[in-house]
Structure formats: C-alpha cells, structure tokens
Simulated scan of single mutants.
Amino acid sequence: MIELRQINKTYGSGAGVVQALKDIDLTVRKAEIFGIIGHSGAGKSTLIRTINLLERPTSGQVMVDGTDITSLPHHRLQERRRSIGMIFQHFNLLSSLSVHDNIAFPLRLSKQPKAETERRVKELIGLVGLEDHADKHPAQLSGGQKQRVGIARALATNPKVLLCDEATSALDPQTTQSILALLLEINRKLHITIVLITHEMQVIRAICDRVAVLDGGMIVESGDVASVFLKPQHRTTKDFVAQASDGSEAYAGLIDKERGKRTQVKITFIGKQTYEPVLYETMKEMNVPFAILQGTISRLKDTPYGQLIVELHAAGEEADRTLTALRDQGLDVEVLTVG
C-alpha cells in the first residue's frame, strides 16, 4: 500500500546541513494500523509528511498504491492527495466555520455536488459521534470533540490512507483512549490504512499492528508490535518499553541472589497460552518446585500476553533441563539470576 524507498531528507547546506531522515525503507500494508514512535527531534513528523509530500524528500521514492508520487506533476499530485487524509496534533480547524462546515470544507474545495456534500457530512458526523454539535464552532468544543471534527474532515473525500500526526498528544488520557477507539473502529469498518506517529508506547500498544522505532532520523527497529514490545533490541526501543512496563524489570534487579540453588527467570506468554496452565504442567512434569514472584496479564491491541517473574527451586543441569522444557512449549524464557 505504502512503500518508502531509501528516503533521505536534509535541510540547509554546507556546514549548516541537517539530515532529518537517513536511508528510510518502510512498507505499510493495506488496511493495517502502522505506528512510528520516536523521541522529540527523531524525525517522526518529517517522515509522516513525506507520505503525502507535504515534505518532499531530498532523495528516494514514495510509492502509494503502486504509484511513485514523487514523480507526479503538480496537478496529479493534488488529485492523489485526496486519497490521503491527515489529522494533526492541534486540530487545525477553521475557527470561523461550524463543525458541519469544517467537515464540508474539503468537499466544497473539490466541487462536490451540494446534495452529495450534505449526505457525506451527515454520515461523518454520525460516525464520529457529534450529532448534537453540528452547528457549534471550534471554540465551543472540548479537545476530544475538536479531534473528532478533524478526523471527520480527513475522511470527507473517502481516502484510502489516514495519516495521524501526534493525534492524541494534546489530549488527556481518558480522551486519548476514546480517540484511539474511534481510529480502531474506523480502520475496521472502513478498511482504511492508518499511519500514526507518537512518542507514547501506550498508543502503539493499544491499536497498532506493526511499529517502526525512529532514532536520529533512522529506523533502528521494526516489526509486529508484540515482538518489538516484548523483545526490544535497540536502546531507544527499550526506553519506550520501560515507559509502558508493569515494573517487573525494576523488580528483577532487586531479586535476592543469596538464596542457594535457585534460578529466577522471566517467562513471556503470547496469545492463547496466556490463559493456559503451561507453566504448571511443565513444572509438574519436570518435578521442579517453583514460586511466582510477580506477574501481569495485558493486551497488545487484540493479542493477550502475560509475563511472570518465576523462581525455580533448581540450578545447574536441572535448571537447564527445565528451561529447555519451557522453551519447547513455545515460551520465551529469560534468565535473570542463577543461584
């Protein structure tokens, strides 16, 4: 659906040149929700704005639905942009227009018939839950309501892609959850491809299928959310995961290492195994006593997962055999300390 090929973006020249993006290769599949996460200054906004060429890359290709849009003449690029909606952190609504007219604005720009515009606006107001606010102006709305208007406006021209530029950063946690739920509903109901950027791992966890981690203008890690979240490799990714952790990593550092022949491990369950007695049955078969020191069950979008800090009353070869048996069950097992 979207493919970025060797995207580079530089600003300035000579000694003052700044490279905002470096050698970006990225593929977003049709109808998925793809997250891009990075700290401030990592290049997130520049990257997402290259997808609709609001930022034209210094080099590289942007492929959208099989077309290299970097090679299109201006009038064809304008046409193509109608298939790419965008919502912004600070809403960018027209303060002099009502909710109805803000949503209608892109339809009027594209000279849609009045009856079709009215039908579409009514449909979108219902989709985003603003039926009682159609005649209000932005100043009369809450932050969450303003973002709902922004989403409806971005959907007005029936885009195939929706770009979200820090769409929840200006919202409180409860409102953020409602906006994320709305984006997820839109993705599932309309099968729109969504690309969002954020600096919050909780946003990625809640609705994304896959994620890319951006650091210093480069993608340093990418993959499905469960793999990246539960097995982070890069330092930056680990920082973000720590933001959303349940504290088990901090606990692991406090485990008493002076307890004799015992081994402490972190065991990760993904999917249906989260709710099955895999640990109990394996340990019973191995005849190894164990204690659960800490545990949590949560979800990554639609995928349940569990993480346990477990102390095995075993060491040496006995512990090694037990760890092998657990891994043979498809569990991810990380040894924290060995007694």
Rank of each mutant, 00 (worst) to 15 (best):
T303H: 15
V278T: 01
Y305V: 14
M283K: 02
T296H: 13
F269M: 02
I267S: 01
E281V: 08
F290M: 07
N287E: 11
V265W: 08
I267N: 04
Q264K: 15
Q264P: 14
F269H: 04
L308A: 13
Q294A: 12
A291V: 14
V278L: 03
S298Q: 11
Y275A: 05
Y280W: 13
Y275T: 04
T268H: 07
I292G: 05
T282F: 01
F269A: 00
G306V: 05
G271Q: 00
L300E: 00
Y280V: 12
F290C: 03
D302R: 12
E285A: 07
F269T: 03
V288N: 04
Y305A: 10
L300F: 04
Y275Q: 05
I292Q: 06
K266V: 12
F290L: 07
I292E: 04
T268K: 11
I267K: 03
Q273C: 02
Q294K: 13
G295W: 07
L300T: 03
Q294F: 12
T282V: 00
I309Y: 09
N287I: 03
Y305L: 13
T282Y: 02
Q294T: 14
K272F: 10
E281D: 11
K272H: 12
L293P: 05
T263W: 02
V265G: 07
I297T: 09
A291I: 11
T263N: 04
P304S: 06
V288Q: 04
T274Y: 00
T296W: 12
K284P: 01
T296E: 13
Y275V: 06
T303I: 15
K272Y: 12
N287Q: 11
G306Y: 07
I270K: 04
F290N: 02
L308V: 13
S298R: 07
P289T: 00
V278H: 02
L279H: 00
S298L: 08
Q294E: 12
T268P: 01
G295M: 10
S298I: 09
T274R: 04
T268I: 10
L308E: 14
E281P: 01
P304T: 06
D302E: 15
Y280G: 11
N287M: 09
V288S: 02
S298N: 12
P277Q: 10
T263E: 06
E281G: 07
Q307S: 15
L279I: 02
V278R: 01
S298K: 09
Q273H: 10
P304N: 07
V265Q: 08
G306I: 05
I297S: 06
T296R: 15
F269W: 02
Q273P: 01
I297R: 03
Q264D: 14
T296M: 14
Y280H: 12
V310G: 05
T303A: 13
G295E: 06
K272S: 15
T274D: 03
T263R: 04
R299K: 15
K284I: 08
N287D: 10
K266C: 08
V288T: 02
V278Y: 01
L300R: 00
T268A: 10
M283T: 01
P277S: 09
K301A: 15
K284F: 05
E276A: 09
K301E: 10
Q294P: 09
T282S: 00
P304G: 05
Q273V: 08
T268V: 10
A291K: 12
V310M: 09
T263Y: 00
A291N: 14
Y275L: 07
D302S: 15
D302T: 14
Q294N: 10
G271N: 02
K272E: 15
V278G: 04
K284D: 09
V288M: 00
G271Y: 02
Y280R: 13
